[in-house]
Design a protein around this nucleic acid. Structure first.
Length: 230
DNA sequence: GGCCAGGACACCA
DNA sequence: TGGTGTCATGGC
């Protein structure tokens, strides 16, 4: 793989060939990911909120608790008392706060969409994103995860993994804002939910599997490129 | 026992 | 606008 990344402000650089090359390379290595790891749109939403600043394995434990109790549905969680919800999602950490955030989203869902996620799909992306961001406890990453993975909207998710790999490859500077980094992807790639879905999933896959964002990690498949670009 | 993991928000200067 | 503290569990 040959990736020529030059220094300079991201906005002034044509990053389309680099991003496409990184994508096709990751796809070749790891294959289709078919994300998100969930069995329903609502499970995606719950996972997106519970995974805030937390290891995914802890989120799985919390979701399994909800499944075991047969509570993983909007109508049931909408009615459940917050203390019980907090106790069930305890393994995901920050459980009191996350119980409130789940409740906040459910209140929004029932107030505006009759509790149906499928109804949200009809709303234009800009309107929907603004609405979801208006829910207390739903920030840009959580909102975009919900839009992309639960509602099939073409928004690129920026998370810790995305930041690491773009900084690692000198595609974006350290500390770049969420919106600016997101713009790098959306302005340099075809606007396509399937592509955004796979690309972000592949970034996470790669980061978990090998890279771990260590600039000197000899195991990283981008190791030679990183040296070249310094 | 310390560090880290797929954030978001309030508060302050 | 940017920095800092808070929220918390579980694996290594």
């Amino acid at each position: 793989m040959t990736v020529m990344v030059k220094n300079g402000p991201p906005s002034a650089r044509n990053l389309k060939p680099i991003l496409l090359k990184v994508y096709s390379f990751l796809y070749k290595i790891y294959g289709p990911q078919r994300w998100w790891p969930a069995n329903s749109r609502f499970e995606v939403v719950v996972g997106a909120i519970l995974t805030q600043n937390t290891n995914w394995s802890n989120v799985e434990k919390a979701i399994n608790n909800l499944k075991k109790e047969k509570l993983l549905s909007p109508s049931i969680l909408h009615k459940i008392n917050p203390e019980r919800l907090a106790a069930l999602i305890r393994p995901s950490g920050y459980y009191n706060m996350k119980a409130k955030r789940l409740k906040n989203f459910l209140n929004f869902l029932f107030s505006n969409y009759n509790g149906k996620l499928s109804s949200m799909k009809r709303v234009p992306i800009e309107v929907l994103r603004k609405e979801v961001l208006g829910v207390d406890g739903i920030g840009p990453e959580t909102a975009d995860s919900i839009l992309l993975y639960a509602l099939d909207k073409p928004v690129f998710v920026i998370d810790a993994y995305t930041r690491r790999i773009t900084e690692c490859l000198n595609i974006a500077r350290q500390g770049i804002s969420y919106d600016d980094l997101q713009a790098i992807f959306t302005q340099n790639l075809p606007v396509n939910a399937g592509l955004f879905n796979e690309f972000h999933a592949l970034i996470v896959m790669h980061s978990k599997a090998i890279c771990k964002a260590r600039p000197n990690c000899e195991e990283c498949i981008f190791h030679s490129e990183k040296r070249k670009n310094r």
